[in-house]
């Protein structure tokens, strides 16, 4: 299945660019995706997955056509 993934530029996600679509196995969870992309534990703790503009959780299974945005707040104000 295909999904679209967006993430802030400081996040290291292998060779993947933010906004690209990627092919995943059916039933892949957000957490499994982040592990497969090599996203560090430290970053994963602060990631809020936003799926199709709804706040979600890392253990949720992604669905075909999902848009996943990885929200990570950065300090400063």
């Amino acid at each position: 299945m295909k999904i679209v993934l967006e993430f802030p530029g400081f996040l290291q996600a292998g060779t993947l660019q933010s906004g690209e679509s990627l092919e995943l196995d059916t039933g892949t969870t957000v957490s499994q995706l982040l592990n497969s992309l090599g996203v560090s534990e430290d970053h994963q703790r602060h990631i809020t997955p936003i799926i199709n503009q709804e706040e979600s959780r890392a253990e949720i299974e992604l669905q075909p056509g999902d848009h996943l945005f990885l929200y990570i707040p950065v300090g400063g104000g």
Binding site: P8, G9, F10, I50, Q53, E54, E55, F69, Y71, V74, G75, G76
Partner: peptide, 14 residues
């Protein structure tokens, strides 16, 4: 971001 959350910034520059 969601139906009730808006995000301003470049998302990167901490």
């Amino acid at each position: 971001l969601t139906h009730n959350i808006f995000l301003c910034g470049d998302l990167v520059s901490a």
